[in-house]
Simulated scan of single mutants.
Amino acid sequence: MSFREGPVVQEDRDGRLRMLHGPIDLIVTAEGEAQAVRRALRRAHEAFEPVLHDLCAELARLRRATGPAPDGAVARRMHGATAPFAPLFVTPMASVAGSVADHVLAAMLTPGHDLARAHVNNGGDIALWTRGTPLKLAICEDPVTRAPGARVAIGPDDGIGGVATSGWRGRSHSLGIADAVTVLAGNAAQADAAATLIANAVDLPGHPAIRRAPARDLAPDSDLGDRPVTTGVGPLSAAEVAEALDRGLTAAREFADRGLIRAACLALAGQRRMIGETVTREELTHA
């Protein structure tokens, strides 16, 4: 895989940067003293320049669940984020969006920087940092109505540096049937991997209303190979929805107990499940 054209960088009127290269589409925001913001955005641009080229050079390894540690900066983040979830099947590609966001944010937060807040949004997988004022987000959004499932405020002492969402309706293929699973974790890469795996666990194996196809038939170079991915979900009873969500909730609780995530919100067919102190049940708004 190669991309002849280099990255495209656009500055919005509100001062945010949009950086695009191939399938990567970042929105980069920095807040603080004007000179500090300009320096941080310049560092973000510089860090982004080689990302896609470096990832393409190691794609064969990144599409495998096992193998030697990769070499590139973003590839190492991907490997480090997914390794703790073994022995579950997961390839480094499960954390690619979050890892790119983490990489760019890290470049912005050099020692001695004078930023107040910063975040990098990679198609909804977000690396974030704040010095004081909490960052407020709508999470676990209903993919059809776009209604938020909950709202969170992330402060500097919450231990959360990343938010990611996965589900069968998303950009990547899923082994499960979750409409959306949003995870809050210490960084975006780990949130990305966990959201993928929890969304896989929200499932009703063998249910006749769920349509599936081998991943390779939909995308010949998929890291999921011949594993059946969800292509459609028909009507489910309330009890079946609850059963599927409870399967995902079990996985989320295990990850939280192991310190891999801080909070999660799972959504399917209008029902929701949550864990974590960051979001309280009273804040949950059903679609």
Rank of each mutant, 00 (worst) to 15 (best):
L20G: 14
Q10R: 05
A65H: 05
Q35C: 06
V51I: 06
G22V: 14
A44N: 01
E33V: 05
D25M: 08
R63C: 07
V28Y: 04
Q10A: 01
G22C: 09
V28H: 01
L20N: 15
A60P: 09
A69E: 00
A44E: 00
R13H: 12
A30V: 11
L59N: 00
P70F: 15
R63S: 06
H21V: 10
E33D: 02
R39C: 07
G67V: 02
V28A: 08
R61S: 12
P7S: 05
H45V: 13
M78R: 02
L41S: 08
R63A: 04
R64C: 14
G67N: 06
I27G: 08
D54C: 12
M19I: 15
R63D: 03
E5W: 15
Q10W: 07
E46K: 05
H45Y: 14
D12N: 15
R39G: 09
T66H: 09
C56E: 15
R16K: 14
A73Q: 06
D25W: 06
E33Y: 05
P50C: 02
H53M: 10
L52V: 13
H53V: 14
G22M: 07
A69M: 00
P7K: 03
V9S: 04
E49Y: 14
R39V: 03
V51G: 14
D14F: 09
E46C: 11
V8G: 04
F48R: 05
R42F: 07
R42G: 10
Q10G: 01
T66E: 03
G15Y: 01
A57M: 08
G72P: 05
Q10I: 06
A40Y: 00
A73W: 06
D54I: 11
V74Y: 12
P50G: 00
P70A: 12
P68S: 11
V37M: 01
T29E: 07
L55Y: 11
F48L: 10
F3D: 11
P50Q: 03
R16G: 14
D71E: 12
A75S: 12
D25C: 09
G67Q: 03
P70K: 01
R42S: 09
A60K: 15
R38V: 00
A75L: 13
R61F: 11
R13F: 14
A30P: 03
A40N: 00
P70S: 12
H53C: 12
A57L: 07
A36V: 08
D54V: 11
R61Q: 10
R43P: 08
D71I: 13
C56S: 14
V28L: 05
G22T: 13
R18C: 05
T66Q: 07
V28P: 10
E5H: 15
A40K: 02
G6K: 11
R39D: 03
Q10D: 08
V9R: 04
V37D: 00
G22Q: 05
A60S: 15
H21Y: 08
I24G: 15
P68E: 07
R38Q: 02
F3S: 07
G72F: 05
D14Q: 10
A30E: 02
R43S: 10
E49S: 13
L59Q: 00
